[in-house]
Each structure stands twice: as structure tokens, then as C-alpha cells.
Design a binder for these strands. Structure first.
Lengths: 125, 125
DNA sequence: CCACCTCTTTGATATATGTCAAGAAGGTGG
DNA sequence: CCACCTTCTTGACATATATCAAAGAGGTGG
């Protein structure tokens, strides 16, 4: 039983590449992927993302988002910050309000990481 | 600003379909996706998955996995249980030991959910 | 400059999670 | 049936996370 694990290997442009792509997986790489997955792994944040993705201009401000998930603005602000520091959202001031916007490539990169990790097996099997 | 959110919509075969596929996202659906993402969103569990995926027969027992992540067997057992109850692993007794195996379709379903949620946008933009 | 709006930070609290040691449970083989 | 191996459960503990109210920070407009 080998000590090495094939999970994340290099940190590609936006996210990762890891998960079984080749040889050994370092703890650091696993943690990097885990941080991004953790950012997604919350019902409130998924709802916020869904709402943003559904907007015509794909953006919204904190005061619009709070009622959507029925939580206080500070709480929503906290969730938005987590998504932003994970690279999943960008923020931009427009006058008094702050507009948040999804970074599709960030989510796509995570999806691709998971997909390629298992695609090989699905074909082999 | 609509009250509804387009995240998860129907519970497809193995996982989900949600994330922006169409109309409104229910909290229940968001929680269902979140549970699966949470199962993946841990460095230790990612390492365990990577190790399993790298095995020739794609399976391993608890006693092999514990040294890989350098944690106690009870802790590893706890992580494996979480992955199993999320549908990401299956377990099977072989004599004294228990063999765990990845369910590629489960991970693939999650990846597809994230991918389709953002693919539309990536194209539109 | 001051009232006001939006957003974020801080402090507090409750719950969830990761971890281990110790012991129970399931199974094998003399 | 008893010693032993692997695995799981339990109880305890530390850390992380989600949440809110209150107060601070950034920006607008009379």
C-alpha cells in the first residue's frame, strides 16, 4: 500500500487539476480543492449562486440577496465574502451598493476536476 | 427581485440536476446538493478518494487507508462512513476486512450539476 | 456637514465537525 | 470456545461554522 495519493497535482489557472489525474496527491493540494468545495457546500451559498445565475445580468447586490435566502444582511455578507475569497464571485461597487457576480470559470474548473477524476474509471469499467 | 432561486430542481438518478438549470431552487434541493458537496469538501476525504481511484482494482480496506492519511482508524472509519452515506463510496465485507470502492457516477453527477449550471453562462458571455 | 442608505466588521452564541482513546462488534482460525 | 484481527461505536474535546444584533465604514444627496 503506497503512501502517495493521486489527488491534486498542479494548481491550474483558476482552480485545480488534481483528483486522480496522475500520481500522488499532496495534502496541500487536497486542502486547496477542499477550500473551494467547502465554499460551495452550503445550502445558503448554493441558493445565492443560483439566484445570481438566474439574473439577466447575472449580478445582484447584498440587499437584494438577503431577502432571497431569508437571512440577515450581515450573514449574507459573510457568505458572499466566503464565495468571493474562494474566487467564485467577484464584487464591484456601484454607488452605494455592491454588485456580486459569478465567475463561471471558477465553478467550471471545479466541475472539470471532479469529472476527469472519475471519467477514466467510468470508461474503463 | 424574485423570491425563488434556480438551484436544484429534481433529484436525478444518482445525484442532482439543479444549479441554474431552470427556474426556482428550493431549500431542500440546495441542502441535498450541499450534503454531497460537503462530503467531498474535506482534505482527508479527497485524499482517500484519490488513493482509491489510483488503485488497480479501485478499492482498499480501512487498515490500508489509515496510514495513507496518517490518521487513526476510527477517524478514517468516520470519514469513510460519511462518503458512503453520501453515495460516493460503497462498502463490502471480504472476510475480516471491509473493502471500500468509489462510485464514479456519484462524483460525475455532482460535476455535471456544477458544469451545466455555468456552461450556459460561459457560452453566453 | 449632516441625515441617510448600503454594506461590512465585531462580539456573542449555538451547532457542526474532525480527531482520538477506549471499548464493543463482527469475523477467523487454532 | 478462545485468542486474535479488522472495523465500528461511543464519549470527550477542540476547532470551525452559521447566525444575529449592534456598531462601524463607505458613499449619496439635501
Amino acid at each position: 500500500m503506497p503512501k502517495t495519493l493521486p489527488l491534486l497535482e498542479d494548481a491550474s489557472p483558476i482552480c485545480c487539476d488534481p483528483l486522480g489525474s496522475s500520481a500522488t496527491l499532496a495534502l496541500d493540494d487536497a486542502m486547496a480543492l477542499a477550500v473551494r468545495l467547502k465554499a460551495l457546500a452550503d445550502p445558503t451559498r448554493l441558493q445565492l449562486l443560483a439566484y445570481l445565475l438566474a439574473q439577466p445580468d447575472q449580478e445582484a447586490c447584498t440587499c437584494d440577496l438577503a431577502p432571497v435566502v431569508k437571512l440577515s444582511e450581515p450573514t449574507v455578507s459573510h457568505h458572499l465574502k466566503k464565495l468571493e475569497t474562494s474566487g467564485i464571485l467577484t464584487k464591484e461597487r456601484h454607488g452605494m451598493s455592491v454588485h456580486y457576480r459569478v465567475v463561471p470559470e471558477a465553478i467550471h474548473a471545479i466541475a472539470r476536476t471532479l469529472d476527469t477524476a472519475t471519467r477514466a474509471l467510468t470508461q474503463v469499467v
